[in-house]
Design a binder for these strands. Structure first.
Lengths: 223, 223
DNA sequence: ACCTGAACACCGTTCAAGT
DNA sequence: ACCTGAACACCGTTCAAGT
């Protein structure tokens, strides 16, 4: 029904870049990076693949635009009232949740640091690192490290296997990995054996926040 | 000449997985991720693409094996004599250099945290985080964050555009980006404008090490 | 056991032709 | 100006047929 309406609208108004990006995000979220083909996208918009190329330069351009839309929302949603450190936590958590909800985002953000989405993140993080009292000389390195660390941690989480944050599926999967670690050769992997139990029941979001706090403690030592 | 010898050897000894992986790494390093096709790889080994599938399950399997070989060398090369913190710096720098030399490694390592290469890194980093005196309860979170941060920072560097670490090419490219940042809307991107000059002449390796040291300072606060 | 290479079921991108 | 959809130049993977 909604699709019919959209199609009708498109027929009279024509395709827009925003419409294409929206449809692309829907496919990416529902079926993952591999499912976003120009054929599938064209079918969803009931048009030809060539029509998409009139509005966008390439698949990469499409992904960059999709990433920028989502990141812009996250960055803009962070309140200004809190302390710089709290704002950084909120921004980091917003990015974590966005990447968790849109796992393809992680790969896209790591593709090019000069894409619009990356610049937004760098600006948002950097301004707060500065507000934390970081000396001017250390500002670029500190902000750069923090951005990479946040995206790296959130990306690893997304790569862990996406979806179910609770429920028996996740517990079973975690348990299997933990069992594997516990069975590793003690001479080769003593550390993994030691922490197998810690990984069994951990919460991804909590772990992410612990990592962010640890790194922010490092940022604070620069002052 | 070297290729001829290799071909002759293969004819008598048959293909080995190690040989395939070696040839794959050569293609990846020389021409990048996109150039590693089964057709190109089969041609380099003067065989058919089906032969490769007898030794490896898929393209992903091939990339995982290639990554594991390189990471194993890096992890094993870290000396045990130094302090835990110095060993962590050395390991991080080894990973940075490996990812800089093999840019495709970054994407591969971020694909799955359960692949052999990732486990090696986790073990190598985690054991030293423990040796730094990190409390047992914080061990898993701290090691996990540090691994993701190191790979995130090294990956961002690799995504910056690969090759030339010195020379006029790099300086010109950096200058262009810096100029762009300096021209951004002050209302939208005050931070990027402010640090445009710092990014102009920075050294990637130095910046990476500064980031690692900052994060290690955060790890140390857990004790 | 191991290799060959054609065949299958796809891709992103281009472009003449339409409206 | 914008859309259509066939065509081009590719992919990873499979598998009957060979040795």
């Amino acid at each position: 029904m909604a699709i019919k309406t959209q199609r009708a609208a498109r027929r009279t108004e024509g395709l827009s870049k925003a419409q294409i990006v929206e449809a692309a995000i829907a496919i990416l979220d529902a079926q993952g990076d591999g499912a976003l083909t120009f054929r599938a996208l064209a079918a969803a918009l009931s048009t030809g693949s060539g029509a998409i190329y009139w509005h966008l330069a390439s698949r990469d351009d499409l992904l960059a635009a999709a990433a920028d839309g989502i990141v812009a929302e996250v960055v803009d949603a962070v309140g200004e009232g809190a302390s710089a450190r709290e704002a950084l936590r909120a921004l980091a958590l917003g990015l974590f949740d966005a990447i968790d909800a849109h796992p393809w985002l992680a790969a896209q953000l790591s593709r090019s640091p000069w894409q619009p989405a990356s610049l937004r993140i760098f600006e948002g993080v950097g301004a707060r690192v500065q507000a934390m009292g970081t000396p001017q000389a250390a500002l670029f390195n500190a902000a750069s490290a923090l951005v990479s660390a946040i995206l790296g941690m959130a990306g690893q989480n997304a790569a862990n296997g996406a979806a179910p944050h609770a429920g028996p599926d996740r517990a079973a999967a975690l348990g299997e990995v933990a069992d594997q670690w516990a069975r590793l050769d003690p001479a080769q992997h003593p550390f993994l054996r030691r922490i197998a139990d810690q990984m069994r029941g951990h919460d991804d979001r909590e772990q992410f926040l612990a990592g962010v706090d640890m790194i922010l403690a490092g940022v604070a030592t620069l002052r």
